[in-house]
Write a protein that binds this DNA or RNA. Sequence first.
DNA 1: TACTAAAGTTAGATCATCCTAACATCCATC
DNA 2: GATGGATGTTAGGATGATCTAACTTTAGTA
Lengths: 218, 218
Amino acid sequence: MLSNTEENYLKALLYLTAEDAGKKEAGTNDLATHLGLKPATVNDMLKRLKEKEYVSYKKYGKISLTRSGKDIAMFVMRKHRLWETFLCEVLEFSWDEVHEVAEQLEHIQSDKLTERLDKFLNYPDYDPHGDPIPKSNGKMPPRATTLLSSVAVQQSCTVAAVKDTSPVFLQYLEQLSIGIGTKIKVLEKISFDGSMTLLVEKDKLTVSEKFANSLLVD
Amino acid sequence: MLSNTEENYLKALLYLTAEDAGKKEAGTNDLATHLGLKPATVNDMLKRLKEKEYVSYKKYGKISLTRSGKDIAMFVMRKHRLWETFLCEVLEFSWDEVHEVAEQLEHIQSDKLTERLDKFLNYPDYDPHGDPIPKSNGKMPPRATTLLSSVAVQQSCTVAAVKDTSPVFLQYLEQLSIGIGTKIKVLEKISFDGSMTLLVEKDKLTVSEKFANSLLVD
DNA sequence: TACTAAAGTTAGATCATCCTAACATCCATC
DNA sequence: GATGGATGTTAGGATGATCTAACTTTAGTA
């Protein structure tokens, strides 16, 4: 049985070495920054995780998850995303509030609870942010990869996921009435600063390049 | 913010000093036994809890909860019983399975979650074992106090709560089709050993004195 | 009242998780 | 290829939660 702390290290490693994030390797410092800890602390823990064969690395080398480490991290992520879905859809939390609570709920140890929750939610493929929820067999639904910024002028698309899940961005989306499934048509792209003019439900609005790089669409 | 461990000590003290349990005071050993720890360990923790003013006691004296200690313990109990209700009623756990998982869920820190869960469950007064769920204002619904063993011959009653929540007893009740709300008529009391003959849904059955002392009725 | 068993406390150790400070290694660049 | 800044490691220490072993106090009883 892993401690919450150990699970968090594995989850962080999964995040940092995720292929779709472009970075395949992680170092002690990356982990320390991500977890808000000191490199020395992380180094200690990595020794233990290596001992238990959840991670593998050579001294001074990059760190990667082993098969069993990755399985555990994926399972924690599964629980996290199922709980986020539960909080939003059942308890009517707004999508900028769920993360913190899900960080706690993801560590509850009960396979039965996870499976029953999944069933109760009707086996969702995506969480409220559009992130794919790993299945109990370890498979992942496909993740949207097209950035709003790369959609051509006059083309239409549907919001599939948010790349940035910070409350400030999510609240901004809320304010603009943009959520997962919202249809967007690109009216104009300003080459000067990368900003875009969009048509959202008959409303015309202009968003920054940063914004357009934070939304994933189908 | 209290640790899970500290919350568990306060909860144990609430249990051990509950008035309806007949015992108003608790000692280091009682607590150690209840928590499965050594007296020395408990003693250490009590010092810290006294320092933080959650408990009060004199050296070598009995221990009691302070106002704030009791408030916290009641809130943890509230969460525990709400989660048990959720697990049974929503996720269809059987009542002998919920305790262990609720022991974990009761430590989730989110007032909003607790209130939303309460609302979603439609503000239940009793958990699946018939135990009263403390309200958000700290009030408790009344607890059934009549033992099945004290019901007179030929009298009828309704099962209100179980006094013993061990899986083995709960599974036995399941097997007998007895649950909260089941109507029972006492047909006979055997003075030799305190056993009773009951009429439950047209079935006649005989139960031990121990059994009759473990069911609370209205 | 004096003794002893039960209950409670203290001292000293262990383990997980974190820290700071000092040291070692790697690698990009000159 | 030497070197300095970034990165990684080690040593030593703190804290929370637990233990065992030894000691102290309380309280029931002879």
